[in-house]
Design a protein around this nucleic acid. Structure first.
Length: 432
RNA sequence: UUGACCGUAGCUCAGUUGGUUAGAGCGCCGGGUUGUGGUCCCGGAGGUCGGGGGUUCAAAUCCCCUCGGUCCGCCCA
């Protein structure tokens, strides 16, 4: 155990990696169905990209991996992707509205825990250039459609509005005043949070602080008429689409740039502190903060690792079958297995074979474990006769007549015959 | 940064108050006569007991440090 993956990171090996890719594929399909195009952005950015976006947020102030490159540039591994996308928007100025989706790892220096890693994967989408409440709905609908498409049923959509910039500032001031007055009742940690960002305190799970926060001023009382109207339109839009939600005036998100709409997807199937699978909101003003035009935006990100945990908990979205379709057993040295396997693979058939000249029994065992429905057997007899033995591997009783299970076919017709059998099997499989 | 618990074979775990060559199940490899899987039987490989230091005649077992994991808190994905 001398060398291992750094703390908070892990290797994702074969069956699980296929599942992760399938999840990303499903998201790509959902997003592109909605007119979002994929963006690849760098894993690291000039550190200012993130700093300008949220000095007071934890992920920027204390969780960033930062470094200087050999050219003395001050860089940071991306702790989130909305800022990267906003930077890309400013740099390229695409036509509006710009709808982008993304996927990939992000990095935060935190204490690892179940469902929380220092390198973790997210999928997400952003819509730049519209302040229409229907844009908010478009984005939320994508997240919802994708998650329910995975088979997740125990998911709650929690929504809130943080008002416009001025509303938010007025509210923040009122909140700070309220908490200052009662600082004595707060826990030591609570007071620390207060000095950093009073909004954070609303989320607090500490019982002592809860008592204080329950009487705190309500954001709704600080909404401007425009913000209130916007939020009402978003809720009406969700209702029209039949997307269930619950309102929570205490929902503030971890990132400071949110304006108006904020939302979170939480899973009741996940226990413990990490029940949020994703969240997002509107961030009007962010693009301007990065030196671009005053273009509004709304988006979200979902934690891939948490989504998969939620899928586990609900017993949905299993790993896709990676099984071979055909296994070539060759006891004449292995060259025939190479030839047959390659021929079949060039025809698009998933083929496995054994190495190291193992015994027929061993190769048959391997064939069984591979999950292949068909085995091709090549021995001295077959080789001499220009044939191969074709054996059905699964779904038959031991008592069945041997000739219905195994037969010899001409060597030259192997690809055609297997293609036919597999197509037949697929048709049957889809019918049942 | 602080707290609690945990760390024995590839995996899941036993291992009595410190006491001989550290075990099981699963998995893996081989065998059960001539070239045939899934069941069964037999055999085998595989472990610096996370790492380092200390106490002791003797440490997987006790103490300290360290690394990693889990939980809480914090926060989020």
């Amino acid at each position: 155990m001398s060398l291992q993956a750094p703390r908070g990171t892990r290797d994702i090996l074969a069956p699980e990696s296929a599942r992760l890719r399938a999840l990303v594929d499903a998201f790509a399909t959902a997003a592109e169905l909605g007119g979002y195009g994929q963006v690849h952005s760098p894993m690291f950015e000039q550190i200012e990209v993130f700093q300008r976006v949220g000095e007071a947020t934890d992920i920027v102030s204390k969780e960033m991996y930062q470094f200087r490159d050999p050219g003395d540039r001050h860089l940071a591994l991306r702790p989130e992707l909305t800022a990267s996308l906003a930077r890309a928007f400013v740099q390229h100025r695409p036509a509006l509205p710009w709808k982008a989706w993304y996927e990939g790892p992000q990095f935060r220096y935190e204490k690892p825990q179940a469902g929380r890693f220092r390198q973790f994967n997210q999928v997400g989408a952003e819509l730049f250039g519209s302040d229409d409440p229907q844009a908010d709905v478009d984005v939320i609908a994508l997240a919802w459609r994708f998650c329910t498409g995975l088979g997740l049923g125990q998911l709650r959509l929690v929504v809130n509005s943080l008002g416009d910039r001025a509303d938010r500032e007025a509210y923040l001031a009122a909140l700070a005043a309220y908490f200052e007055e009662r600082a004595g009742e707060l826990s030591a940690q609570g007071r620390e949070t207060l000095s950093r960002n009073p909004l954070r305190l609303l989320d607090s799970k500490r019982p002592a602080d809860r008592a204080v926060t329950s009487g705190a001023p309500d954001i709704e009382d600080y909404w401007s008429p425009a913000a209130a109207e916007h939020f009402a339109a978003v809720l009406a839009g969700l209702e029209a689409l039949g997307i269930p939600f619950e309102r929570n005036p205490r929902l503030v998100r971890g990132l400071d740039y949110y304006r108006r709409t904020a939302f979170e997807l939480a899973s009741d199937a996940l226990d413990g502190a990490q029940d949020a699978v994703g969240g997002g909101g509107r961030y009007d003003g962010l693009v301007a903060d990065l030196g671009g035009p005053d273009v509004p935006g709304v988006g979200f990100a979902l934690g891939v690792d948490r989504l998969l945990l939620a899928c586990d908990a609900e017993g949905t979205f299993p790993a896709p079958p990676g099984a071979a379709e055909v296994f070539v057993v060759d006891v004449t040295g292995g060259r025939q297995a190479s030839l047959l396997a390659e021929e079949l693979r060039r025809a698009g058939i998933r083929v496995e074979r054994a190495f190291d000249g193992r015994s027929m029994k061993a190769q048959m065992k391997a064939a069984d474990r591979s999950g292949a429905r068909w085995a091709l057997l090549v021995g001295a007899d077959e080789l001499a006769g220009g044939v191969v033995s074709l054996r059905r591997m699964r779904g038959h009783e031991a008592a069945e007549a041997p000739e219905s299970v195994q037969s010899r076919i001409p060597r030259g017709g192997v690809v055609e015959e297997l293609a036919r059998l597999l197509a037949e099997g697929a048709a049957e499989g889809s019918g049942s």
